[in-house]
Design a protein around this nucleic acid. Structure first.
Lengths: 222, 222
DNA sequence: CAGGCTTTTCAACACGGTGTCGAAAATAAA
DNA sequence: TTTATTTTCGACACCGTGTTGAAAAGCCTG
């Protein structure tokens, strides 16, 4: 019996990666194939229009076979998000670790995120923006968002201790900054032609700095 | 034949209010009853779980009768949004019309919005945050959002001409501010206990001012 | 208020996606 | 090879959607 990730009581069975130390069985491969196929399928059409059949078909199994691996479309999306977002943590790591405002590091981090969203925006926004994705997605989402906010929050506090002006409660500011980021990326995905990418990144970078620390050095940007 | 609002080619049949000057027929009443009932139903459970039967039932007609008035759940939601959001324009009107930063006016406007979201947050976020609501909702949403952004944008430009520092392209800043607002309200709805309302409003108000104009007067707020 | 017209109502239907079950097939272990 | 376990999938029951066509209710106008 498969279908892990969410056990009955809501807790998560840790890493959904290949269990401990064991030759990857046929099933493990299929499960991974399903996740990989899902990435493509979710890219191509609105999540609400994706059927179990699409997902199973893309991974080369029958529809009813799908349920052996995941409980629902949302559960699969949750697994996808979980897998693909370890890398995302790294994007922001540089800036989060840096000292002072370090506009360059922040901008680089955001640029990385934007690049990701330009490719996988469709399911990323389903996962991070949709108000009410299923319980599985909500669970993963909340975890990732909390992690992000906490890290961000800590950095803000650290800056405050170092004498920088910080204008507002760090946790609120962190959450607002995260929202600003995702919404901006989502917009950029939804209407790729509408924005000049560099201008967008500059504006977003400065907006976040201004949001958290007040005026930025060299306010008006070309 | 009813089912207006969206005519075939995508244009909207102007005001969905009672047509011109004519006694409200039985059908007009039902249509309104449906919209009113929808507000309650949409408040009570996730939109995705609301069935046509729920909506029809709440308005006292059979499920199949629903389709005489609206093409889908989303079409009804679009009508609801359209009706209920004339008032929302007024909320922000004071600040949009005012001169200078006028923190007070902005905060009052935001407070009005927050109050609205605390009641109707469930369907408001379905309408304004969900990445991919149906075409009908998207249509109304885009119209309202564009209106808002344009007004906001104009105010920023006006301020810039009046000599105020404005840091970034007005249209981008306006959109960011709008996003910040809805996401913050959405959070407040999702988890009412989590925030101190006054603190939230203060933080949001200052955040927006900082976002658009750089540092605010009296930065750190109690 | 009778007639003919339009508007409104709804039961019955066809369709498509979901999720379950259990028996067969494939795979791994002994 | 034999046995146990994992994996696959056809067949089924269920539920929500959207359509249709005919009956009922509403609304004129003479």
């Amino acid at each position: 019996m498969r279908c892990r990730l969410h056990s009955a009581d809501g807790t998560v069975d840790a890493v959904p990666a290949i269990k401990s130390r064991r030759a990857p069985t046929k099933g493990d491969q299929r499960e991974q194939a399903l996740v990989d196929a899902a990435r493509d399928v979710f890219r191509d059409k609105p999540i609400s229009q994706v059927t179990i059949d699409d997902l199973a078909g893309a991974a080369g199994i029958a529809r009813s076979g799908f349920y052996f691996y995941f409980e629902s479309k949302q559960a699969l999306l949750a697994a996808l998000v979980d897998q693909r977002l370890a890398e995302a943590d790294l994007e922001m790591a540089e800036w989060l670790a840096s000292d002072g405002l370090d506009r360059g590091a922040l901008r680089r981090g955001l640029a990385g995120g934007l690049a990701r969203w330009k490719i996988d925006g469709r399911w990323l926004r389903e996962a991070f923006i949709t108000p009410d994705p299923g319980p599985e997605v909500r669970h993963v989402r909340d975890r990732l968002l909390d992690e992000g906010c906490t890290l961000f929050s800590k950095r803000i506090e650290r800056d405050a201790r170092a004498g920088r002006t910080v204008v507002g409660p760090p946790d609120l500011l962190a959450k607002m900054a995260m929202h600003l980021r995702s919404m901006t990326f989502a917009d950029a995905y939804a209407d790729p032609g509408a924005y000049d990418e560099d201008e967008l990144l500059d504006t977003l970078t400065d907006a976040i700095l201004r949001l958290v620390y007040g005026a930025t050095p060299g306010s008006v940007q070309g």
